[in-house]
């Protein structure tokens, strides 16, 4: 009954930590800025297909960086404390929401930087922003679950990439395909909405899997 309250408290704790130790947040921001700058130096104004591909690949790397720390920063002792005050389901839901918020923010910032530095091939801006929001949430959900798994093993950062990239490929391909709508490509019939539904369905699948599977990772 007080599950929502627990989730809210855990979420608030994560956000407060973020506000107090801003170096991680700014670290990721700087990561975005320098990556986009390097891309600008090497490509200047790429055509829309390359722009789109690069954008999503950069989202992927930002996501690995931003989400990885969410479990790595929790020490053993602190995990033990959470174990005693909250349930695993509340804990993972709080993490999923927190990472989705962070990733949403980062994606919008990188979209802005991409538009400033690499030119703007986006024609239907509103549609593209909506797709970016959906995409960044999808990425963050999958990688939150993978970070939870990787946190149990050694060499966590590299393991996350190894485990995550093959798993995320279908979503990434779909996102690249769908986001071409924002770049002015016309889709026939229901194709676009079908793919959007599929992405949304995958998100729900990931959330369900996280809720079912995380309790098994939780106990040590």
């Amino acid at each position: 009954m007080n599950a929502p309250k627990h989730i809210y408290t855990l979420l608030k704790k994560d956000l407060l930590l973020e506000l107090r130790q801003q170096y991680t947040f700014y670290g990721v921001l700087l990561y975005i800025a320098s990556t986009v700058f390097v891309l600008y130096l090497s490509l200047q104004q790429p055509d829309s297909n390359i722009w789109n591909g690069l954008f999503w690949i950069i989202q992927l790397f930002i996501c690995v960086n931003a989400v990885a720390k969410s479990f790595l920063q929790e020490s053993r002792g602190r995990m033990l404390y959470f174990y005693s005050v909250a349930g695993p389901v509340q804990f993972i839901i709080a993490k999923l929401i927190y990472n989705a918020i962070i990733m949403l923010l980062m994606s919008l910032v990188s979209l802005l930087l991409f538009n400033i530095m690499l030119g703007s091939p986006v024609i239907r801006f509103g549609q593209f922003v909506a797709i970016v929001c959906l995409g960044s949430v999808s990425l963050s959900l999958v990688f939150t679950m993978l970070a939870a798994i990787a946190a149990k093993a050694q060499q966590q950062a590299s393991l996350m990439a190894i485990m995550g990239f093959p798993v995320i490929i279908p979503q990434l391909l779909l996102l690249m395909r769908v986001s071409k709508a924002g770049l002015g490509e016309a889709f026939k019939g229901e194709a676009l909405s079908d793919m959007m539904w599929l992405l949304g369905g995958l998100d729900i699948l990931v959330i369900l899997m996280a809720i079912i599977l995380f309790p098994f990772l939780w106990k040590d």
């Binding site: 999958v142 679950m145 993978l146 798994i149 485990m163 093959p166 798993v167 279908p170 599929l198 369905g201 995958l202 699948l205 990931v206 899997m209 599977l213 098994f216 990772l217």
Partner: peptide, 12 residues
Amino acid sequence: VYNIFAFAMLFP
């Protein structure tokens, strides 16, 4: 856990 998660993602 990874086996189940990856299979669920692979299926679609």
